[in-house]
Every structure is written in C-alpha cells, then in structure tokens.
Design a protein around this nucleic acid. Sequence first.
DNA 1: ATATTTGGTTTATTCTGTAAACTAGTTTAT
DNA 2: ATAAACTAGTTTACAGAATAAACCAAATAT
Lengths: 93, 93
Amino acid sequence: MKKLNPLLHQELRLSIISFLANVEWVEFNKLLEATSASKGNLSVQLKKLETADYIEIEKSFKNNYPLTRCRMTELGRDELESYIQTLKSMLDI
Amino acid sequence: MKKLNPLLHQELRLSIISFLANVEWVEFNKLLEATSASKGNLSVQLKKLETADYIEIEKSFKNNYPLTRCRMTELGRDELESYIQTLKSMLDI
DNA sequence: ATATTTGGTTTATTCTGTAAACTAGTTTAT
DNA sequence: ATAAACTAGTTTACAGAATAAACCAAATAT
C-alpha cells in the first residue's frame, strides 16, 4: 500500500493546501481566518510547506504594514492530488 | 470546519481501522502483514485504539502460542465514517 | 542442554505540533 | 512628543506522539 505523504497528512497543513487549491494568491490573515489556526502555528506550517516547495510565499507591504501572501505551486498541486488518490484507495472511497 | 479526529488521523491507526472495516476478527500477524508496521508500533497503536473503544482485543492461545485478535467496535465504525465525511468536505471530494 | 523462533510488550529516544513569548514596526490618543 | 495599543507576523520552549530497539515468556528445533 502506498504511504500517505506525511507533510500533507497533518490537519493544519492539509487545510492550508486544500484552501489554496481553489484560489490564487492568499493573504496570511485570510488563511488565519479560514483555518482558525493561531498565528504562530500558521507561520510554522506555512514555512514547512514553502521549504518543500508546495507553496510560494511573497512578502510585501500594504498600507505601511507587512503583508504575507502565498499560493500553491505545481508541485503542491500534484502532491495534493496524489495524497487524495492514496487516501481514496486506503479508505475505499 | 469540523476537526479531523486525531486518533484516526494517523497513518498506522488509519490503516488498521480501515483494514478492520472490511472484516471480522483479525489476527495480530495478519495486521502486521497488511500494514507493514513493526510489531512494537502495531502493539502500541492497537492499545490506543482499544483504550478509545474503537476496537476490541481478544487474547487467547492457538497451537500453544499466544494469539491476539481484534475487531472494530460499532463506535470505531461510526468514528471512521465521521472521519471520512470530514475529510471529504475538507478536500471537496 | 541450549539456541532459535514465535508472538508479542515495554521503554527510551526522537520527532512533531502548538501556543506563549517575542520582534519590529504603525497608528492613535493625550 | 510620548505612551499605549494595535498589526503582522516569527521564534522557541514545552508537551505529547510516534517509532524502533530492547526485552520477555514460552515453544520448538538442534
């Protein structure tokens, strides 16, 4: 049986990725709201996804405040697809 | 968004439960083979599932050797179903 | 007798997840 | 002008979880 990608098999990271799957660039605060994570946890998990090149993180400023946005990469999209396939076959759904 | 049951959202335990979903009593060695886990890890995770009453563990002897068998409880079945529903809605599948 | 195998369990270590604490700056009120 | 409060995150310390190595008790093989 194929193994579940451990980077995706974690609730917050899976929430992030599946949220990003349906949109383009998303702001940090939007993800905060969508996932109801704490800022610290969100920051840590985003960095892990970035390190793996599953997402891209872009930092800029908006109204003088720092602004962090992210979006999924092609690799991220592929890995999510593959993760879903593995799950489906495991769970027979 | 509903939270994923953390007891089920772990690869080995999910493998165990989804394997048990399709059969009745299963022997320890059968699970070992089906999941390719180590014996130690399998033993620990089975006990966690038992503690939560997701599975039942029955110990006996067969050919003079100790024999451990398990099967899913109704609670286990319900929780798996609920976990799958949550996943589906998260992943939009 | 003693070595090996079976069928596990315990435990020690490592890895992960998380929230609290912190950084760095901005806005607002006084 | 200064202090207080707020924005937008990041770092890190701790707790809990996962895992494999070491262990155990009994059976069988040599």
